[in-house]
Amino acid sequence: MSVLRKSASLLLLAVIALAPAVLSAQQRYYTRDAKVYFDATNKNSPERVDATSKSGTLVIDAASGRVESAVLVKGFLFEKALMQEHFNENYMESSKFPKATFKGQITDASKVSFNKDGVYKTEIAGDLSIHGVSKPVKTTATITVKGGKISASTNFNVGLADYGIDIPSLVADKLAKEARLTIDANLEPMK
């Protein structure tokens, strides 16, 4: 009897102890290969200034709605190798500031149920840190849940001057004052 009771209480304890681990496994979603694209082409420029990185990281905490994302500046691939070099050397100074990060919050996270199919339009606010400068940003994001698969996408405009990125007058006709940043991610549950 006492053996039974003891093993029952042990089981109960184990369940209690395990619960957060199991729950949290359901709570977080991540990716290491988010597609991050930006376009800073000036309206009338024939030369495109755009690049893509396919190795952005993104983590969403479903319960709290917290979102964190990072991308390596050197991971952006341009069509023109020289433009890529200038992007790293003169504009982003990627040896000094290797990463761009976003840390924020889905402000209406309660709207999203990660285990029910649907397309959720949400709002995100947080701090975007580029070129060593951190600024609050606000934008909308779309979170799509379909058959247990979760994807997220968002875009926002980044004013280059806000992040201390100088545009020399020589390239002012090629380079827009704001870059449009687009992020597409397919997330997996974190184990």
């Binding site: 184990a14 395990l18 681990a21 977080r28 991540y30 905490d61 917290r66 974190m190």
Partner: peptide, 21 residues
Amino acid sequence: TLVLVWSASPNLRAQDDLLGL
């Protein structure tokens, strides 16, 4: 057992750093 299970739970680690996970 408790210590083992809790320490294995990611909830306890890096609470403030999602990317750190």
